[in-house]
């Protein structure tokens, strides 16, 4: 069966003032695919990710998500409800309890009743392994726990795609695995995921494709094992020699 493309990025250009961040990126992600983006800092990988749900605007090119082009404000909000995002710094809402963090958008965006939203939230918090701390505030949780709540919060909107922007970079080494486990589980369930991360173990275990970016361009992409062991581009070799 021909895989359906769910994210289509064409010739994407983005610059912050004089500084170019993306110099014409083309990327297609198919339904159910897990794509890991690696690259040095400043290579534009986070910017690319943030263009997918329009947290960043871009100058030229096109982004089509689930057949909706990113153009008008209505379209952008339509896409955002289909695309979940997990941030490096978690960005949980500190003034709301863990449970409220997961239910708020369900209620105000998805218009679910409190009972429905709570039921979904309990189920997801169970899934990410935080069932007992629902009434606590994010500040009382460890980093790993906060990031897992953030994943539950995004999943509660029933997204078709999940974006992860360096989800483990702000975590203590001991807590990285618990977050990766949740992500592995998601990948196994067939979630379409685009992950900016240097967790090679995760890429090898879960990703269908690894993409190397530098200076706002995609340098090379391949199945993770192939990319990591037999890179064809000089730039890729240089980068991998520094992180492997």
């Amino acid at each position: 069966m021909e895989p359906t493309p769910i994210i289509q990025i064409q010739n994407l250009h983005k610059h912050f003032g004089e500084t170019a961040a993306l110099n014409g990126v083309d990327l297609v992600v198919h339904q159910g695919e897990v794509v890991v983006i690696i690259g040095p800092s400043g290579s534009g990988k986070s910017t690319l990710l943030r263009c997918i749900n329009r947290l960043e605007t871009f100058q030229t090119g096109s982004v089509i998500v689930d057949e909706i082009p990113l153009t008008t404000a209505e379209n952008i909000n339509a896409i955002r409800t289909e695309v979940g995002m997990v941030f490096q710094s978690f960005n949980l809402f500190p003034h709301l309890t863990v449970l409220e963090n997961v239910t708020l958008a369900q209620k105000v965006v998805r218009k679910r009743t409190k009972a429905e939203a709570n039921a979904i939230a309990y189920e997801l918090l169970e899934k990410v392994g935080i069932p007992e701390k629902c009434q606590g505030y994010p500040g009382q949780l460890s980093g790993g726990q906060q990031q897992r709540v953030a994943i539950a919060r995004a999943l509660a909107m029933n997204p078709k795609i999940m974006l992860f922007d360096e989800p483990t970079s702000a975590l203590d080494p001991e807590m990285i695995q618990e977050v990766l486990d949740v992500m592995l589980q998601l990948a196994k369930e067939g979630m379409t995921m685009v992950v900016v991360s240097h967790e090679m173990g995760f890429a090898r275990a879960a990703a269908d494709r690894a993409v190397l970016m530098d200076e706002g361009l995609i340098i090379e992409q391949a199945v993770p094992d192939v990319l990591f062991s037999q890179p064809t581009q000089e730039r890729t070799k240089r980068f991998l020699s520094k992180i492997l």
Binding site: N53, L55, N77, R80, T81, V83, G84, M85, F87, S89, N91, L92, F93, L104, A105, V108, V109, R110, A150, R153, A154, M157
Partner: peptide
């Protein structure tokens, strides 16, 4: 990040 998180949830 607070605004971004809220907007990314479709608010």
């Amino acid at each position: 990040g607070q605004n971004e998180a809220a907007r990314s949830l479709g608010m």
